[in-house]
Design a binder for these strands. Structure first.
Lengths: 224, 224
DNA sequence: TAGATTGTTAATCGATTAACAATC
DNA sequence: TAGATTGTTAATCGATTAACAATC
């Protein structure tokens, strides 16, 4: 009994931070991050979760929990969180400190846009090259990034040890591209193609689906 | 008591379909739709929810419920749903039958891509024009869509009675653009700008946030 | 002190998943 | 009939929101 009590106490002292952060929290962090950067520029030394909630139209409790789950130091009553510290904690947690390299496959309309999108570097993402089957674009460079032919994909990815692949090919080719990426050692796929992709366990995927977003939006417009 | 019973019975007979469909279901419908189109092309007359679930790596119960919530006719045991009928029901529910007109503001990299994206017409979306401040692009046409100067936005939107606005301007300008759109009578905003937008009640917004998606994906890669 | 803000525990909500009876 | 599939009701899970005590 006494032992149990002591162990519990030690356990409680040990848990400084939750090991995992809720997925929903994670997807809000970049929004906070962006907002805090603006406040930082304004020279605001402290920021309260209530202020953040108010500005971003979120529930204050939700914001408080979200911030608490990443902040290395607890918020101070009546003050809130130190803006700079909080930004740094988020930056570290989101991995914006060290670049994550990625390749992009399919340099069409959307692919081209993403390849030259300058914003990714703020999110710790560095798209190092594009790949395409079209001879008209292979060999060119888009936004300073080289475009190689598909046959070089596997060698490039495995040699550079790249872990993230962005798929922007037409739907029917998505699975084949994914298979190649996986075979080269990719661990995560960001899929913009309108197609379902089957993957072996251990490889994670995030599907970006404009049609799904649009469906929700249109439906809400229609109803009101 | 007897009355109560009768009324309950009538109520049950009356509810042919749920009036509202879960948001999560709604966002899966386009995925089913796409899948069913492929099966249709293959000439498959019937399709079962178990087969759909298997192919799309979803839970069979979830798929069954989703399909049941849009299908005008119940699925038949041992058979499943008539592919053609189900496609038609989804098409109707998602509003893919009648075009929803939209304007796009900010014809930069992403804006240009979306303006000329041919896929939207499959989703019942017709982006009729783009607007921008840059004189170099104003007056040109992108993917067959005219690009007008910003000063024409409000007049254009209100005169054409357009209900949906797509925002692809840099973050700091998003709020001002949204205000103009709302003033012109827009009911829904599809926001691709990395910024929070405040809106009056009655106007719905869907924020598209690549940084959020990326955060979730990177985190899952890092952990595994 | 009073009031604003914090963190935590409990209640609610929405969505998914499990269990099962009904049907062809 | 047996088996695959359906629809529905109940249990579980994850996330949000409400309630409240603690702190500066």
């Amino acid at each position: 009994m006494v032992n149990g009590k002591i162990e519990r106490k030690q356990g409680e002292a040990g848990k400084s931070k939750p090991l995992v952060i809720m997925k929903s929290t994670l997807s809000r962090l970049p929004i906070y991050y962006c907002y805090l950067q603006d406040r930082m520029k304004e020279g605001l030394e402290y920021v309260s979760s209530s202020a953040v909630a108010e500005s971003l139209s979120l529930n204050p409790v939700q914001v408080r929990k979200d911030l608490a789950s990443v902040s290395s130091t607890p918020g101070r009553p009546k003050m809130g969180f130190r803006t700079e510290q909080l930004l740094q904690d988020m930056k570290a947690y989101l991995g914006y400190d060290n670049y994550n390299e990625a390749v992009l496959v399919g340099v069409g309309g959307l692919g081209k846009t993403l390849l030259q999108y300058p914003g990714f570097k703020n999110y710790g993402l560095n798209v190092v090259a594009g790949f395409d089957v079209d001879d008209h674009i292979v060999g060119k460079s888009v936004g300073g990034k080289p475009v190689y032919k598909m046959s070089r994909l596997e060698n490039f990815v495995s040699r550079m040890g790249i872990k993230l692949g962005i798929i922007t090919v037409p739907g029917p080719q998505a699975q084949a591209v994914a298979d190649k990426l996986v075979a080269s050692g990719i661990l995560g796929i960001w899929n913009f193609a309108p197609a379902h992709i089957d993957l072996p366990a251990g490889v994670v995927i995030k599907n970006e689906n404009l049609a799904a977003s649009l469906a929700v939006l249109s439906n809400r417009i229609a109803k009101d």
